[in-house]
Design a protein around this nucleic acid. Structure first.
Ligand SMILES: Nc1ccn([C@H]2C[C@H](O)[C@@H](COP(=O)(O)OP(=O)(O)OP(=O)(O)O)O2)c(=O)n1
Ligand SMILES: [Mg+2]
Length: 468
DNA sequence: CTTGGTAACTTCC
DNA sequence: TGGAAGTTA
């Protein structure tokens, strides 16, 4: 459940940047013949044509949706191009899209604090850069406004006026604006410049929201797409939130949002304003209650983290219906494949970023043989992560066996496995100073933190496996 | 195979 | 802690 953060008083300039139909753009760069065509990315295609995971704007015009099957997409859009996700080790391999995401992050990180929020989204804290611009080169002449910035959408300005771009240019250099709006205008110009650089250097378009906090920036980055940006002046916030359906707010898309609707009769964020902080805290606990009270007022103190890399690496696969795994031999085969991929990815992370993962976790889903929805709780298990593909495979299989024992203690019939995943987490930078290295070794050597609990075999080698 | 599949993040206890 | 649950891409 969401938690409120204390908010600083100084105005910040925050942007949320979200790539347009990202995987499709990655495939369109690989095969330019797909540009401008109705296109979707599908993974696998043997069952009903595969599942769509990204859809171009041309295809959306035909009603094609993510989560449609390939067959269904062909039905509503016979001319659609379906591009398959690469497959390696008999599973989807998303590395192409991860690399493309990193290209974008490298550019967006150049102007201030940057947080990788997902494979295709980042938050930027542009406060310092905006202040700098306001001091050194404030926008003052409508004609000289950077062209991409002049195409911004400004919440609260009429969006259908024939004079729209003129109004935007005027807003961006208003000399009678308050300080916050001036900072926001500078932020919009900086974001426009960054978006142009992303396009020039990667060939990818993106959209963005610019506001005084992450919540508002995120809400509007998707309002005008593709290849557009939207600004949220403080003066527009109240009206904007008043009519916003609760389910559109980040964190309210699931059970909490449904509870607001069903239990409190709240349909829009504005409806939340009629509840006291105490009432919301009573209903949802002090943390979530406070958070709800604040977001209803447009308040969000969450900071942009300075983090360009993911905090964990995982790989998994589902085995639906007839594909379910029915014995330890097939589980081992698949775990070996998953661990092979994971090992490669954490090894790259070590080589390229000098980061080490400390924990290996196995997740699985199981059912009773012949029964489809019952008895699904297969316990997740974790252990210290030892580098080297063979070690990871061995440890993951032990984790599985340990989980299977627990599982069988309650559900004692034939089992089937319907999904498996392995995750490497607790990833740290390798310290670079001599004394920190000593401290690091003392705290993290196998002797100090023994390997698999509850297992008969003893890990032998503290070395890092295939590190160069 | 009845909101897909593969990933990643946060919070709670 | 580790493990479960929830939310989102
Ligand atoms: N359920 C999902 C949602 C997204 N993605 C992947 C494919 C998307 O291309 C990428 C980014 O997700 P977005 O929600 O940002 O969607 P798009 O970037 O495809 O489109 P948009 O232009 O609406 O942002 O993440 C996925 O694999 N599964
Ligand atoms: Mg996107």
């Amino acid at each position: 459940m969401p938690v409120a953060r204390p908010e600083q008083q100084q105005p910040r300039v925050i942007a949320h940047v979200d790539m347009d139909c990202f995987y499709v753009q990655v495939e369109q760069r690989r095969n330019p013949a797909l540009r401008g065509q109705p296109t979707a990315v599908v993974q696998y295609n043997d069952w009903k044509g595969g599942g769509l995971i990204a859809v171009s704007y041309e295809a959306r015009g035909f009603g094609v949706k993510r989560s449609m099957r390939g067959d269904e997409a062909k039905r509503v859009c016979p001319g659609i191009n379906l591009v398959q996700v690469p497959v390696a080790r008999d599973k989807a391999d998303l590395n192409l899209y991860r690399s493309a995401g990193s290209e974008v992050v490298a550019i967006l990180a150049s102007k201030g604090k940057c947080e990788r929020a997902s494979i295709d989204e980042v938050y930027l804290d542009l406060t310092d850069a905006a202040k700098e611009m306001l001091l050194q080169a404030p926008p003052d002449s409508p004609e000289e406004i950077f062209m991409e910035a002049a195409k911004s959408n400004i919440l609260g300005l009429p969006s259908d006026a024939s004079e729209k771009e003129k109004n935007v240019r005027a807003w961006l250099c208003r000399s009678d604006a308050d300080y916050q709006d001036k900072l926001l205008a500078c932020g919009a110009i900086i974001v426009a410049q960054l978006r142009v650089r992303v396009l020039e250097e990667t060939q990818f378009t993106c959209s963005a929201g610019i506001a005084h906090n992450k919540m508002l920036a995120k809400l509007v980055s998707g309002m005008h797409k593709p290849a557009q940006q939207t600004v949220v002046p403080s003066s527009s916030v109240q009206d904007f939130l008043a009519s916003l359906p609760v389910k559109k707010m980040k964190q309210l898309g699931g059970k909490l949002g449904s509870s607001l609707q069903d239990d409190l009769g709240v349909e829009t964020i504005g409806d939340l304003l009629s509840f006291t902080k105490e009432k919301l805290q009573e209903q949802y606990g002090v943390n979530t209650g406070t958070w709800l009270w604040k977001i209803a007022r447009g308040i969000s103190g969450e900071e942009v983290e300075d983090r360009l890399l993911p905090k964990s690496h995982g790989c998994g696969k589902t085995f639906p219906g007839p594909k379910a795994l029915k014995n330890s031999t097939s589980v081992k085969g698949w775990l070996d494949q998953l661990c092979d991929e994971l090992s490669e990815r954490i090894q790259s992370d070590l080589n390229q970023n000098k980061r080490i993962a400390q924990t290996l976790t196995l997740h699985a889903r199981a059912s009773k043989e012949n029964e489809r929805d019952l008895a699904k709780k297969f316990p997740s298990k974790s252990c210290p992560l030892r580098y080297g593909t063979g070690k990871i495979q061995e440890d993951a299989m032990k984790l599985f066996e340990s989980g299977l024992q627990d599982f069988l203690e309650s559900q004692n019939t034939g089992w089937i496995i319907t999904s498996l995943s392995v995750t490497a987490s607790k990833i740290f930078d390798i310290p670079s100073g001599t004394s920190s290295i000593l401290r690091y070794i003392k705290g993290h050597s196998p002797a100090a933190s023994p390997a698999i609990p509850d297992s008969s075999s003893v890990p032998e080698d503290p070395s890092l496996g295939d590190v160069p």
